[in-house]
Design a protein around this nucleic acid. Structure first.
Length: 500
RNA sequence: CGGGAUGUAGCGUAGCCCGGUAUCGCGCCACAUUUGGGAUGUGGAGGCCGCAGGUUCGAAUCCUGCCAUCCCGACCA
């Protein structure tokens, strides 16, 4: 006999509605939920403990997956000699415009109380703060690889990188960001391609099963490819405002970097060949994706599998004896939940009233809330509230841990389903140019359409509509069609969207 | 980096046009009463008005530069 009813959020303190101003809503959530704040340095952010704990969860799971697929972690330097960047032409073109450069190694006092750069401490060769690590890593791999017996090399690093972005957004595009970058070396192209695809699948698995984020796996067109790659695979997700977000990439680099850094090996039949390479990465941008895909006007909605706190317990009491009584019960419940690997927070602060705590944990996206008062203690019940559906019900204390465990699973699935349904509603096939433009304006989302396969057409579409080809989906069905812009023949549909 | 807007206490704001050292709400601190959806009362603290120059007897207010945020472009995980 459970009573169930909707409860409304009377006010979402300081968070603007997402329908009113999506960008502002996103920023409000990040700040108000205590995930991050701005730093004194342009484009850089301070990731606060709550936000960082989500990143730690992401790291832990992915790191396990990388190790499961045979990779090891290593660490390469933050600073890279400038000359390394000139070795791979398309790579330098891709990153040159956004590199921070270290030119001096000392400051001094100018005698008037100011600290200034000591011009005498100028570096012979400037150092680049890594925007990505291909160059330093391939320079290093040259010393590690002589024979096919040394291959493959399967290395990942967790690091920060810096790209001097013109326009920044918390978590989505900051000048400095945290990520992982895998860099592997192989004896054959086939093996490297298999690695590229394997890691794409790891990312897709993580996005769908942990972040509850449905993604489209696909390949980038030549225009959208990573600087220096022969082929870029990606996972693309749809945000609640209908814009696409690239959530992860995996690149087949061919022999480009091996040639640039002269990394040759002796094959089984005693011939010299260049090594085949891949690189793949995801960043703290995933946290941005998590927020934009699931959250609502009351705050974050975190999938239980990545929530730093999965269950929060709020006691409701008037006197200390009541609290003692409740705390006594909570101790037992907490123990049971922890035994199931569920993270629990018992918030017995007496400086905040229950309503304030409810609002706070809604803002922070805690999936399940248990409220217990004296009335419950008498009845042998608790009040259980779900963040995802904003419903609450009164349930028996008996078997509660079990129920919480299955509810968390249900919430995880429900959040995924919600995101999946949203994407299904906002992914349409379109066959005419007018329809294409109309959909972008009236119901933004993924648009599946025919394209003649040329960079010029892709470019023209981007200029006229701001929509880009997010990817050519893997396992795309082949069908005859006409390019929406030029009317030229096409063999398959590709996925367009406006993107972050 | 180009165009537009904004910046006043932790947050949201009034004052700016028409110069005379700052308004209100929330939050914060103390005490009391409270505690099943963001408590109430009383008392109190908190500001070199984004930063740096300039004009002026005097600048939150006028002028210049810079920085940051948001929106629109170019760039991008």
């Amino acid at each position: 006999m459970y009573s169930q009813y909707l409860f409304t959020i009377s006010m979402s303190k300081g968070v603007i509605s997402k329908d009113e101003d999506y960008s502002q809503w996103f920023n409000d959530l990040v700040i108000k939920s205590d995930m991050a704040e701005y730093s004194p340095v342009r484009g850089c952010m301070i990731i606060k403990p709550y936000g960082y704990s989500i990143w730690e969860k992401i790291q832990a799971v992915l790191d396990g997956m990388f190790k499961e697929t045979g990779h090891s972690n290593a660490y390469f330097p933050l600073l890279i000699p400038k000359s390394f960047f000139s070795k791979e032409a398309s790579h330098v073109d891709g990153f040159a415009k956004e590199c921070a450069v270290v030119t001096h190694y000392r400051l001094k006092n100018d005698g008037e109380g100011n600290i200034i750069v000591d011009e005498e401490a100028k570096l012979e060769e400037e150092l680049i703060i890594r925007p990505t690590s291909e160059t330093i890593i391939w320079n290093t791999y040259k010393g590690w690889i002589q024979s096919y017996r040394d291959l493959p090399i399967l290395v990942n690093q967790w690091a920060n990188v810096m790209r001097w972005e013109m326009r920044t957004r918390l978590f989505l595009r900051t000048s400095e960001f945290l990520w992982q970058e895998g860099h592997t070396a192989h004896a054959t192209a086939e093996e490297a391609i298999a690695e590229t695809e394997q890691m794409l699948n790891v990312y897709a698995d993580f996005a769908e099963n942990w972040m509850a984020l449905p993604v489209v796996k696909g390949r980038k067109t030549a225009n959208e490819r990573f600087a220096g790659a022969l082929d870029t695979y990606c996972i693309e997700a749809l945000m609640q405002d209908g814009k696409a977000l690239q959530a992860g990439t995996s690149h087949f680099l061919g022999q480009n970097f091996a040639k640039a850094f002269d990394v040759k090996f002796t094959t089984r039949d005693n011939k010299q060949d260049f090594v085949w390479a891949t690189s793949w990465g995801v960043s703290t941008r995933l946290i941005g994706a998590l927020i934009m895909a699931h959250s609502d006007d009351a705050g974050l909605v975190l999938p239980p599998k990545l929530a730093p706190i999965q269950v929060v317990i709020v006691p409701i009491y008037k006197h200390d004896e009541e609290l003692d009584n409740i705390a006594n019960y909570v101790a037992g419940l907490t123990k049971e939940l922890k035994a199931k690997g569920i993270s629990v927070k018992f918030d017995k602060r007496d400086t905040h009233r229950p309503g304030a705590k409810f609002a706070e944990y809604e803002l922070k996206g805690v999936p399940l809330r248990v409220a217990i008062g004296s009335r419950d203690m008498q009845n042998g019940t608790v009040e259980l509230a779900r963040r995802d559906t904003k419903t609450k019900e009164t349930v028996n204390q008996e078997g509660l841990a079990q129920q919480i465990e299955s509810l968390l699973e249900e919430i995880q699935n429900n959040i995924y389903k919600k995101a999946f349904d949203f994407r299904a509603e906002n992914m349409v096939e379109v066959d005419t140019w007018d329809e294409f433009k109309r959909m972008l304006d009236e119901q933004p989302g993924f648009i599946s359409a025919h394209w003649d396969g040329t960079s010029e057409t892709e470019q023209k579409i981007k200029e006229e509509t701001k929509a880009t080809i997010r990817c050519i989906p893997l396992n795309n069905k082949q069908e005859e069609g006409k390019c929406i812009l030029t009317g030229k023949p096409s063999t398959q549909r590709v996925l367009f969207a406006r993107a972050y």
